[in-house]
Structures are given as structure tokens and as C-alpha cells.
Computed example of a mutant assay.
Amino acid sequence: MTDQVWGYRETSGRSQDIDPTGFKVEAVDGSIGKVDKHSDEAGSAYIVVDTGPWIFGKEVLLPAGTVSRIDVGEEKIYVDRTKEQIKNAPEFHRDIHLDHPGYHDELAAYYRSGDAFGGRPL
């Protein structure tokens, strides 16, 4: 189950040749910001999204398993969650949580939760 949360789907279009930094990120109900950082580390892949004014300049960490599609031509990453679902995820602070296993476990539990995501767990 962990690989499903922290790994890109085979159908996402993720390629190691593409640096997604700066790509726009689209939730199912609209834009949430731009990719500020990413990791392709096996079993721990994610994107960090700078949300700008959407949630007052905060960043969110999204496990790679939330990415449904990457459009290189449009420079957009599509995730299969709503803005509200992303906003309700455990709060992310880069200095504390980026490489903190406990936070990754908490975030993975949240993203696996069918209740938290409209009955669509990862």
C-alpha cells in the first residue's frame, strides 16, 4: 500500500527526463499552485506545491500517488483530489516535515483514507 501512496502511477506520464518544478498543479476542481520541489525517490516520491494566495502562501506536500496525469506540453500536473481534500491534509512545514518519517506516515494514512477522499483511497 505504501508504494501506491509514494509512487507515481504507471499511467501518470511521469518521466525521469522531465523536471516538473514550476509546473502548475490542478486539483479536480481548479488550480492549487505550482510545483516548488519534487522527489522521485523510490518509495518516497512527492511534489511540494506552493499554493500562493489560495491558502495564504502555504505549501502542501502531495504524495506521488495523488498524481493522475502529467501534461508536459501544458506544464501541468493533475491530481485526483479536490482543493478541500488537499487543504484538510495534515499541515506541512518544509523545515520540519520534508524528511520526517513520522509526517510521511501521517500523510500516507490521510491519503489512504477513503473517508477523507470521497471514498477513493489510494
Rank of each mutant, 00 (worst) to 15 (best):
A89N: 09
E74R: 15
G52V: 02
D50N: 15
H104N: 08
F92S: 08
G114S: 12
V25R: 00
T51A: 04
G73R: 12
D99L: 08
S44W: 13
T51R: 01
G30N: 09
K37N: 11
L61Y: 02
Y110V: 00
S39C: 03
K87V: 08
A42D: 13
V25L: 01
S39E: 06
A109W: 04
R81A: 05
T21R: 14
L61W: 04
D80W: 10
I96D: 11
V79E: 06
G73I: 02
L122N: 07
D40K: 09
D40Q: 11
S15Q: 11
E84Q: 14
E26S: 11
I47Y: 04
K37V: 12
S39K: 04
T66D: 10
T82V: 01
A42M: 09
R112C: 02
A108K: 11
E106L: 12
K24S: 08
G52D: 11
V49K: 08
Y111R: 05
G30C: 08
K37L: 13
V35E: 06
G118A: 14
A109Q: 15
P101T: 12
A64D: 01
K83F: 11
F56L: 14
E41M: 06
G119Y: 11
V60A: 07
D95C: 00
I18E: 13
Q85M: 07
W54Y: 11
V25G: 02
P90H: 03
T11A: 14
A42P: 09
Q16H: 13
G65I: 05
E84W: 08
R120P: 02
V5E: 07
T11N: 05
Y110L: 09
G102F: 09
V5L: 06
D95R: 09
Q4N: 13
G102Q: 14
A116S: 12
S39L: 04
K76Y: 01
P101I: 00
T51F: 02
D115N: 03
V25H: 06
P101Q: 12
A108Y: 03
E26C: 06
I86T: 13
Y103G: 00
Y110D: 06
G13M: 02
A45M: 04
K58N: 13
R94E: 15
I32T: 03
G57N: 15
D71T: 03
H97D: 14
L122Y: 02
E26T: 01
Y103T: 10
P20W: 06
E84D: 15
E106K: 14
V25Q: 05
Y46P: 07
D50R: 10
I47L: 15
P121A: 04
Y111N: 00
S68A: 09
N88V: 00
G102S: 11
D95A: 10
K87H: 05
F23I: 07
Y110E: 00
G13E: 03
I18H: 08
K76F: 03
D17K: 12
I55Q: 10
Q85K: 06
W6F: 14
G33V: 02
I70F: 06
K58C: 07
I32G: 04
S15R: 12
D40I: 08
E84T: 14
G33F: 07
E59G: 04
D71M: 05
Y8T: 07
R112L: 13
I18A: 08
S12P: 08
E41D: 06
L98Y: 01
R69Q: 11
H93F: 13
D17I: 06
A116P: 00
A109S: 15
Y8P: 09
E106R: 12
Q85L: 05
I86Y: 05
V28P: 00
E106D: 10
D3E: 14
V5C: 02
T2N: 15
